[in-house]
Simulated assay, not measured.
Amino acid sequence: MRLKAQRRNLAIGLGAVTALGLALGGVAFSESQSPEVVRLGKGLASVDAKKVADIEPRTTIAERPTTEPEPAASESPMADGEASYYGSELAGNLTASGEAFDPSQLTAAHRFLPLGSKVRVTNPRSGQAVVVRINDRGPFHGNRVIDLSTAAARKIGLIRSGTGRVRLALLLD
Rank of each mutant, 00 (worst) to 15 (best):
M1V: 07
R2G: 12
L3E: 02
A5I: 08
Q6L: 14
N9G: 05
G15C: 07
A16P: 00
L20R: 03
L20P: 00
G21T: 04
G21M: 03
G21I: 04
G21D: 00
L22F: 15
L24I: 12
G25K: 09
F29D: 04
F29S: 08
S30M: 02
S30F: 11
S30E: 09
S30V: 10
S30I: 06
P35A: 14
V38E: 13
G41C: 08
K42E: 15
G43R: 15
G43N: 14
S46Q: 11
A49T: 14
A49P: 06
K51C: 13
K51Q: 15
A53C: 06
I55L: 15
E56A: 14
E56W: 09
P57Y: 02
A62W: 00
E68C: 13
P69A: 07
E70V: 14
A72Y: 11
A73H: 14
S76E: 03
A79D: 01
D80T: 05
A83Y: 03
S84E: 10
S84M: 05
G87R: 00
S88G: 01
E89M: 07
L90R: 10
S97A: 11
P103D: 07
A108C: 15
A109G: 13
H110I: 00
L113R: 01
P114H: 06
P114G: 06
G116R: 07
G116L: 02
S117W: 13
S117F: 12
K118R: 12
K118T: 06
R125G: 03
S126A: 05
G127Y: 05
G127T: 02
G127K: 07
Q128S: 09
R133G: 10
R133S: 11
I134S: 05
I134K: 04
N135H: 09
H141K: 15
H141F: 12
H141S: 09
H141L: 10
G142Y: 12
G142N: 13
R144K: 07
R144S: 02
D147A: 09
D147W: 08
T150F: 11
A153K: 03
A153E: 08
K155P: 02
G157V: 10
L158C: 05
L158W: 02
G162K: 01
T163N: 07
R165M: 02
V166P: 07
L170T: 01
